[in-house]
Amino acid sequence: MGKIESVIETEPGRIRIATSVVDPRGANGCEAAITAIAICKSARCSFRTKLRLGFSG
């Protein structure tokens, strides 16, 4: 199972996420792909909420 290593806001409105998922490409529904997609969806949701509420830093 992968985990988030770091999240960096590279510029306003853009983030870079580093994970321990090595290669999410593979067979349909492989565990690494499911983990990578879940991490991205969660980060996107959190970041959008942060922007909507006006938090910074």
Rank of each mutant, 00 (worst) to 15 (best):
R14I: 15
G57F: 01
I4M: 06
K41Y: 01
E11R: 13
A43G: 06
K41P: 00
I8W: 05
R48K: 11
G2A: 14
D23K: 15
K41R: 08
A33F: 04
V22L: 12
G54M: 05
K50L: 05
I37R: 09
V22K: 14
A43Q: 10
E31A: 14
P24Q: 12
L51P: 01
T19P: 02
I4C: 02
I17C: 03
I17N: 04
T10V: 15
G29C: 06
A32P: 00
V21K: 05
A27E: 12
A27H: 11
I17M: 10
G26H: 11
R14T: 14
A27T: 13
A18L: 14
E5F: 03
I39Y: 08
I37D: 04
N28C: 02
A18N: 14
G2P: 13
A32T: 07
F55M: 00
S20M: 11
V22S: 10
G54I: 04
F47K: 08
G26S: 06
F55Q: 00
E5C: 07
R16F: 02
A27D: 07
I34V: 13
A36T: 03
R25V: 10
A18R: 15
I34H: 00
G13R: 14
C45D: 11
A43L: 08
R44M: 05
S42Y: 03
M1T: 08
G13T: 08
R16I: 02
E9K: 09
I39K: 09
V22T: 15
N28E: 13
C40D: 03
F55S: 00
E11Q: 11
E9V: 12
T10C: 08
K41M: 06
L51T: 05
E5A: 13
C40M: 04
A18G: 02
G26K: 13
E9L: 10
S42C: 08
A36M: 09
T35R: 14
S46P: 00
C45M: 14
S56H: 03
G57D: 04
L53M: 07
G2R: 04
E11K: 15
D23F: 13
I8F: 07
D23H: 10
P24A: 06
L51K: 11
D23L: 12
I34D: 00
R44W: 03
F47H: 09
E11A: 13
C45Y: 06
K3W: 08
G13F: 08
A32G: 06
E11L: 06
P12N: 02
A38C: 04
T10Y: 04
R52K: 14
N28S: 10
A36S: 09
I39G: 01
G26F: 09
A32I: 03
E11P: 01
R48M: 13
R14W: 06
I39M: 06
P12S: 01
R14G: 02
L53Y: 05
E31S: 15
R48P: 00
K50C: 07
G2T: 11
I34S: 01
I4V: 15
A43M: 13
